[in-house]
Amino acid sequence: MQAAPSKDFVISRVLDAPRDLVWKCFTDPAHMQAWWGPTGVNVVKSEMDLRVGGTYLYGMQTPDGAVMWGRQVFREITPPERLVLINSFSNEAGGLSRHPMSPTWPIEIYSIFTFDEMPDGKTRFTVTWRPYNPTDEERATFDAGHASMTGGWSGTIDKLETYLAKAKG
């Protein structure tokens, strides 16, 4: 029996800003520092070497004071349309590390950010995530969210469809 290939994790949103500006929000470390961290988390370090093979290293400070490190290694830079990078947790020096909460979360995530021009000066931003060179276990962790769909539980599919409809707005 072959394991089914991973399904991509996709999120998309139309942003009310011109494409060049949205692009810069992702490719300028000062911009990234201003918004990248999840809610309640401050980006305390934001260092970017924007070239293919270069790294963006960021430190996120949670409310309890702990700093979580993450990095992006750029694989493809096509301004202002497409940014491909390998995303992972890291240590302070930018070395690879595992998800702090899960030993089975894929150590590296292949991420594709696309920026599409929309009418009225808007921009559709889409993020696509898939495990990068995952082990079986890592793939399973990533796919677990989709496992219930292949099992045929309509509730999950409904949820996804509602979500997609909303995301496609």
């Binding site: 994790f9 009310d16 949205v22 961290g37 677990a144 099992g151 999950t156």
Partner: peptide
């Protein structure tokens, strides 16, 4: 049990939703 695993991935969906909320506010 699968639902629980699903919820876990849902966390990442939420993280991105929040992140995009922040980006939206920042752009504004």
């Amino acid at each position: 049990a699968l639902k629980e695993a699903d919820d876990w991935l849902e966390e990442y969906r939420r993280l991105w939703e929040q992140r995009l909320d922040r980006l939206e506010d920042y752009l504004k």
